[in-house]
Amino acid sequence: MDTGNNSTVTEFILAGLTDWPVLQIPLLLLFLSIYVVTVVGNLGMITMIGITSHLHTPMYYLLSSLSFIDLCHSTVIIPKMLVNFVSEKNVISYNECMTQLYFFLIFVIAECHMLAAMAYDCYVAICRPLLYNVIMSHQVCLWLVGGVCMMGLVGATTHTSCMLRVVFCKDHVINDYFCDLNPLLELSCSSTYVNEVMVVCLSAFNILTPILTILSSYIFIINSILHIRSTEGRSKAFSTCSSHMAAVGFFFGSGAFMYLQPSSVSSMEQGKVSSVFYSILVPMLNPLIYSLRNKDVKVAVKKFMERRTFW
């Protein structure tokens, strides 16, 4: 990606989460622990799905893709954040900042659409069980994952291209712990009208379109569950999608709070809390949610641990 600089600013300073020196080391240890759990959890989920034959289904193929997105998503943000906790001056160059913004947007947009693809998979599994293997074929899964990646690339390229046109000339302190759209636009000394329109339009598309897809899927899912007569059947159908419902609530709730508020209502401090949730905590929570609430994954983990103990 060409990161041409139209600004007089060659580097930014990241304000971070707090100005209090006494909190730097505790926060370093906290977020280092979160990152380790995130990496182990998501790599473990990818490995478990890869080596367990009965998990080689469309649902777990999409879950594996979500884990890969979460792993990359957190890796774009947290390592630089950890370095900044022990640095005297949290400097990031213009090119590094634009690169971080670009890859962050790829993975956050991809996660929005991946959750929608997983909702569609749940819909097919519960509402069209006899046709599941036909509708969710291997080729369809590949197309879904490819479409998710394409959405991420198009959205990130559009936003970053618009950001490269923005001129930064004086203030270079980003009031955040990474290079995100809104904190960068706050520093502009040129018109940001086009950027703000793109943020609202693309954020609405990348948040509201998946949400509508998810809501539509779950309306049909709930309707089908209510028509299941046996309690056991209802419980099994609900457990199939309960993990996904929790992941959707965490991710889209914090994302919508960050990007869909008018600038007059939102504040950078509120934005920091929200972005910590969806960019750092959600990638850690997703593998925990799916492993603790999914019987197939728990069985796979148990068998894997038994094999390791036997060896």
Rank of each mutant, 00 (worst) to 15 (best):
N42V: 10
K295A: 08
M118K: 04
I109C: 09
A119T: 14
F252Y: 02
S7C: 08
F68D: 05
V76P: 09
I228S: 02
L185R: 03
S93G: 13
D19K: 13
F257S: 06
I211Y: 00
P262R: 12
M163Q: 10
G253S: 14
V167N: 00
V297K: 06
S243M: 08
Y193S: 01
P26I: 15
S190R: 01
H138L: 02
N195H: 05
L62I: 03
V148M: 03
G44K: 07
R308D: 02
N286E: 04
I225M: 08
P283G: 01
I106F: 08
G41I: 04
N6V: 11
T10K: 14
F251M: 03
M136H: 05
T8Q: 14
F252E: 04
Y177I: 08
P283A: 01
K89L: 14
N294E: 11
R128G: 01
K89F: 06
Q139V: 02
A204N: 10
S224I: 04
E88Y: 01
A125G: 00
V197W: 00
I51R: 10
T209G: 03
Y278M: 06
E306A: 06
G233S: 07
V173W: 07
Y94P: 07
A119M: 10
I77V: 15
L30P: 08
C122G: 07
S33D: 06
M98K: 07
S216G: 08
D2R: 12
V167C: 02
Q139N: 00
L23A: 13
D180L: 15
T52D: 13
F252A: 07
V37R: 00
C127K: 03
L184F: 10
T158A: 05
Y60N: 15
P283R: 00
Y35L: 14
T192V: 15
S93N: 09
F168C: 02
L181K: 03
E96M: 12
V40L: 13
T209I: 06
N95L: 04
G271Q: 11
T158D: 10
A156G: 00
N182W: 08
M150V: 05
I225Q: 02
N42W: 12
L144S: 07
K303L: 09
G146K: 09
